[in-house]
Amino acid sequence: MFTGIVEELGEVVAVTATAGDSALVAVRGPLVTADARHGDSISVNGVCLTVVDVDAGVFTADVMGETLRRSALGTLRPGAPLNLERAATLGSRLGGHLVQGHVDGVGEVLSREPAEQWETVRFRLPAHLSRYVVEKGSITVDGVSLTVAAVGPDWFSVGLIPTTLKLTTLGAREVGDPVNLEVDVVAKYVERLLGDRLATGEPGALPGVSITGPGGVGSPGEAG
Rank of each mutant, 00 (worst) to 15 (best):
T164K: 04
V148R: 10
L167M: 13
L90N: 02
Y132L: 10
V175F: 15
V63M: 06
K166H: 15
G215M: 04
R37D: 08
S41Q: 11
S210R: 12
H128T: 12
L198W: 02
S71Y: 00
S130P: 05
T169K: 05
I161Q: 14
P81Q: 06
A88L: 11
V179P: 00
P207H: 09
E191V: 10
A80F: 12
L73Q: 03
V179T: 04
V58S: 04
S145G: 10
A14L: 07
S22K: 04
T3K: 06
K136G: 13
E222W: 15
F123N: 01
R86S: 13
N180T: 08
G65L: 11
T164C: 09
A127D: 15
V51K: 01
G39D: 02
V99M: 02
P81N: 05
G218K: 05
L181M: 08
A149F: 09
A14M: 09
P203L: 07
S43Y: 00
G159F: 05
G143Q: 12
S22P: 10
E191M: 10
A80C: 11
A149T: 13
V134Q: 06
V133T: 09
L49F: 04
V32Q: 01
V209L: 13
W155N: 04
R131F: 09
G95W: 06
A223C: 12
P81T: 03
E119F: 04
D35G: 04
P178K: 03
H97D: 01
V141W: 08
L49H: 04
P81M: 07
P214S: 09
G208Q: 14
Y132Q: 07
Q100I: 00
A14K: 05
F123Q: 02
V58L: 08
L110N: 01
V144P: 01
G91D: 07
S71C: 08
F59Q: 00
T89E: 12
M1V: 15
S145D: 07
K188M: 14
T89G: 12
